[in-house]
């Protein structure tokens, strides 16, 4: 078999148990929704569990990537002595997370779709906006999840580098770096400079039936986030290739 596909399948096998557990949990969410629909039959409350489940998916890819890296950590020489460059090894893990989150979310949306059919009268006035919101949320959840997964990777790689150099302080150091850079990022996003750099290509998404205010997005923000993610990814790959020891 080809090198990268074989790697991808191996990475799938590393986290498939968690993946299947996730799917089973989706089914449980659907059952819970069904149950709530019976109990409180006249409200949109029944869709709260699904909404929560969808929101929780932002943590999906980072969790998968982290579990995958953690299991590589049990036999690090094996992973590190692989002849492929680190960016390919890491990309395989992200690609796996991406595939799994797409399947999991699609599954959840499909289940909620099935549940909506008999209750269609409840949401009929909101219908157009509901599926448009769904369409808006779907890629955004995935995109945020991917961003977080890159953060998970860089934190893992940083920890691997530091633990041989400063020992037990490495956890503290990694947490410190994470808080500082997360805080720094948040702080930077409030500055004028950030707005200057990113506020272009604006689109306002209007969902009048559900939200009173439109959601304002800027292409510049996506570009900014994308650049940060690519930068972090390159940093992680460099750390794995040059600094992590097995």
């Amino acid at each position: 078999m080809r090198q990268w596909p074989a790697m991808f399948i191996k990475d799938f096998k590393l986290t498939r148990t968690v993946f299947f557990i996730g799917l089973v949990m989706n089914v449980w969410i659907a059952i819970l929704t069904l149950y709530m629909g019976r109990v409180a039959d006249d409200s949109l409350l029944m869709f709260v569990p699904i909404a929560i489940a969808v929101a929780i998916h932002v943590a999906y890819v980072p969790i998968m990537v982290f579990i995958s890296l953690k299991s590589e950590g049990n036999h690090l020489p094996l992973w590190l002595s692989n002849p492929q460059p680190a960016f390919k090894l890491l990309l395989s893990k992200i690609a796996n997370g991406l595939m799994m989150i797409v399947i999991s979310l699609a599954f959840l949306f499909a289940l909620s779709g099935l549940l909506i059919v008999p209750k269609f009268n409840l949401i009929e006035p909101y219908w157009t906006d509901t599926w448009r919101v769904g369409l808006f949320i779907f890629p955004h959840i995935i995109w945020i999840s991917i961003q977080l997964s890159v953060w998970a990777m860089v934190i893992w790689a940083l920890y691997q580098c530091l633990k041989l150099k400063i020992g037990r302080w490495s956890r503290v150091a990694v947490v410190g770096v994470t808080i500082l850079s997360g805080g720094g990022d948040a702080l930077f996003k409030t500055t004028k400079l950030y707005r200057l750099v990113t506020e272009w290509g604006g689109i306002a998404y209007k969902f009048p039936a559900i939200l009173s205010d439109p959601i304002q997005t800027y292409a510049g923000e996506y570009v900014y986030d994308f650049m940060i993610v690519v930068g972090l990814f390159i940093l992680t790959a460099w750390l794995v290739d040059n600094k992590v020891e097995g």
């Binding site: 002595s81 290739d241 040059n242």
Partner: peptide, 21 residues
């Protein structure tokens, strides 16, 4: 560095395997 793995076949003392295989 780790890319030396291309020309070096290394085995660790406790053995490194993917237990899933």
């Amino acid at each position: 560095n780790r890319r030396t793995g291309k020309v070096v076949s290394y085995s660790s003392e406790l053995g490194s395997f993917y237990p899933i295989f």
